[in-house]
C-alpha cells in the first residue's frame, strides 16, 4: 500500500521484528523447543516440530524500535508495543503486549497460538501504540516487513506460493483420468495453487531434479523452466479471473491471498511503467473490455518466461549440448 499519512506525529525509523524462539506443546503437555533453524527468512516453520498433534505454539517475539520511541520530550506517551498474529482464512487475531528491555529499544514477549486456530500461514506483525495529543491508542509505528508463522511447513520459506503433488493421473479425479499422458497439470483454483506431477510419466520427477550438465541435467532444466512458465501464466490468469471490485469506484482490488501476490509480481513485468493499482485496472479493463486483451498475451507470456528463467535455461542447454557434441567428436 502507498504511504499512509496519519493526522498526528508518528515515529520515524525502522521497527524490526523477529521470532527469537518457538516451542510447541504436545497433547501430553510437554513443551518441545524448536531448533533455531525453524525460524529463518522471516518465517517460522512450526511443521518442523517432532511432536505430533501439538496443540499450542509459543512464539518469543522480539521487536526493536528506534530509541525515540521511549525518549523524553517526544509527542507521545504511554507507549505500548503489541504483537499481532492474524490469518485471513481463520479470522485469527491473537495479540500480546510486549515488555521493554532496559533501554526501551527492544521489546519482548511470548505470543501463544492454538494449532486449531491456524489453517496454514499466519502473519505476525507489531504495532507501536501510544497516547498522542490526549488521544490514547494511537498507532505510532509498524514494521516494514512482517513475519510468517507456517503451521505446516517443515522448513521456513517466506515466499512459498505453490504446493506440489505427485500423483498418478490415470487414477486421479474426473478429467485428469481422461488425460493420462499429461506430464503435469496446474491447478490454480484452490486456496493455494498446486502443481501436479504425473507419476505415470516415468522418470519425470527424476529429470526435474537432475543436477549437472549431463543430458538429464539439460533436459531437467528445460522442463523446469517450461513448467515454471506454465505455472506463472496459469496463476496470473486464475488470479485475474476472481477479482473483486472496489465498492467505491468499481476499480478492481488486489486479492488478499496468493492471488494478490502473484498479480503484483507479474504486473511489474507485464506493465512495468504503471503503478500496481494502475496496472491492475489496465489489465482488468482489457480483459473485460472490447480490445487489448489479445495484445496483452505476449506480455504475460514474456513475464512468465522471465520469471521462470526460460532464456537462461535454453542458453545453458545449448552450451551444454555443444559441449557434449565436442566430447563425442573428440
Amino acid at each position: 500500500m502507498a504511504r499512509v499519512i496519519r493526522p498526528y506525529p508518528t515515529l520515524k525509523g525502522t521497527v524490526a521484528l523477529r521470532v527469537q524462539a518457538a516451542s510447541v506443546k504436545g497433547p501430553d503437555g510437554d513443551w518441545e523447543h524448536l531448533d533455531v533453524a525453524a525460524s529463518a527468512d522471516r518465517t517460522t516453520a512450526l511443521g518442523s516440530a517432532d511432536t505430533l498433534g501439538w496443540t499450542t505454539a509459543r512464539l518469543r517475539v522480539s521487536v526493536t524500535v528506534p530509541a525515540k520511541a521511549t525518549a523524553a520530550g517526544e509527542p507521545w506517551s504511554d507507549v505500548n508495543v503489541l504483537a499481532i498474529l492474524t490469518e485471513g482464512a481463520t479470522n485469527l487475531r491473537a495479540t500480546v503486549l510486549l515488555r521493554p528491555t532496559d533501554d526501551g529499544t527492544e521489546w519482548i514477549g511470548d505470543l501463544d497460538v492454538l494449532r486449531a486456530d491456524v489453517f496454514h500461514r499466519a502473519n505476525l506483525t507489531v504495532q507501536m501504540v501510544g497516547t498522542v495529543g490526549g488521544v490514547p491508542g494511537r498507532v505510532l509505528a509498524e514494521p516494514t516487513e512482517d513475519w510468517v508463522i507456517d503451521v505446516r511447513a517443515a522448513r521456513p520459506e517466506h515466499g512459498q506460493t505453490f504446493t506440489v503433488r505427485e500423483t498418478a493421473f490415470s487414477r486421479s479425479s474426473l478429467w485428469l483420468r481422461n488425460m493420462p499422458d499429461l506430464p503435469w497439470s496446474i491447478n490454480a483454483a484452490g486456496s493455494r495453487p498446486e502443481v501436479r506431477l504425473n507419476t505415470d510419466m516415468e522418470r519425470l520427477t527424476e529429470l526435474l531434479d537432475a543436477q549437472g550438465d549431463g543430458p538429464a541435467g539439460i533436459v531437467g532444466s528445460l522442463l523446469l523452466a517450461q513448467l515454471g512458465e506454465a505455472m506463472w501464466t496459469a496463476t496470473f490468469h486464475a488470479a485475474l479471473g476472481d477479482l473483486e471490485s472496489d465498492e467505491e469506484d468499481g476499480s478492481p482490488l488486489f486479492p488478499a491471498d496468493w492471488r494478490g501476490e502473484a498479480l503484483r509480481d507479474m504486473l511489474r513485468t507485464v506493465l512495468p511503467d504503471l503503478t500496481p493499482g494502475e496496472a491492475l485496472r489496465e489489465v482488468h479493463r482489457r480483459r473485460t473490455g472490447d480490445h487489448g486483451w489479445g495484445e496483452l498475451q505476449s506480455r504475460i507470456q514474456a513475464a512468465a518466461q522471465e520469471r521462470a528463467g526460460l532464456a537462461k535455461a535454453v542458453r545453458e542447454a545449448v552450451r551444454a549440448l555443444e559441449k557434449l557434441e565436442r566430447e563425442e567428436s573428440e
Binding site: T55, L82, A94, V135, G137, R138, V139
Partner: peptide
C-alpha cells in the same frame, strides 16, 4: 482502525482453548 489500536484501548481476554475444545 488505521489510527486507533482497538486491541489496546479495548482489550479482549485470551481465548479459552479448553472451553472451545
Amino acid at each position: 482502525a488505521m489510527t486507533l489500536a482497538y486491541d489496546v484501548i479495548a482489550p479482549d481476554i485470551e481465548r479459552d482453548q479448553v472451553a472451545v475444545a
